[in-house]
Amino acid sequence: MSMSPATQQEFDTQSLFYNRWKSRSLRNSLMNWVSGSIALIACLPLLSLLGMVIYRGSRALSWSSFVELPPAPMQEGGGFGNAMVGTITMVSIAALLAVPSGILTAIFLAFLGPDSKLAEAVRFVARVLSGLPSILAGVFAYAMVVLVMKSYSAFAGGVALAVLMLPIILLTAEQSMRMVQARLIEAAVGMGCTSAQVVRRVLLPTAFPGILTGVLLAVARAAGETAPLLFTALFSNYWLVQEGQLKLAEPTASLAVFIFNFSGSAFDNLVEMAWSGALILVLMILTLNLSAQLLAKKLQR
């Protein structure tokens, strides 16, 4: 075909205007609507759950909820202060176990031996572990701690939660260390840093926001776990601190198990109490998640 040198055709500006009845416009708006409404529906379970927990939970909530022990059936007042203390204690024990080991492992995976056979193996195990049903973490801690110590305990609960936290911390920490630009590492090596100095002075500070986010997310997840605690910490109607002594080696209450136990009760006041506990647990986890996101944003600028 030869290019005709004929004058250019007149341009029809009408073709530029919207015509919503064209088939491509129809299909476009249909898809937009479908996608938008499904996104909205996807929010429904979460929103209705939150609404329900806030509605039911706030009714019985009072100051005594935080500072008193669980009530007997039909008894007025009471609270779940011991369960809150228990949850915080066990999550702290878990963090104490999982954070240092997770970060040290991540340093190996991201920096010291990223291509080693060992690193490959650890990564594989961590990924498997992160998909582990949480009840198995409970069974593990039951076998390793409860049977050995011959008692349900806060410590056993902490171990079970640590097993769940470890892969999350490890994998997110490795990821954020890998995000540290190679040239920063090179610059530090070029300054004459030993590997340990590179890690302490450049790798960790630079990756800190990401590591912190991972830790907070892991803590948030552990705080809400019920199944592993049923095997390990069980429950208790008493305070963790008795007569000035911290009873880490005895059955310990937690919010999650508190909700589990009391929500099935036949007595209204106990069920109400469980709702309040649920509200507090949700708020704790929500706060952790939000602060993780805020911190990450703020620190990364």
């Binding site: 040239r183 920063l184 610059a187 630079t206």
Partner: peptide, 11 residues
């Protein structure tokens, strides 16, 4: 001492 193509200030 070494200076690189991209500035490499530490955080």
């Amino acid at each position: 001492g070494m200076v690189f193509q991209q500035p490499t200030p530490f955080v």
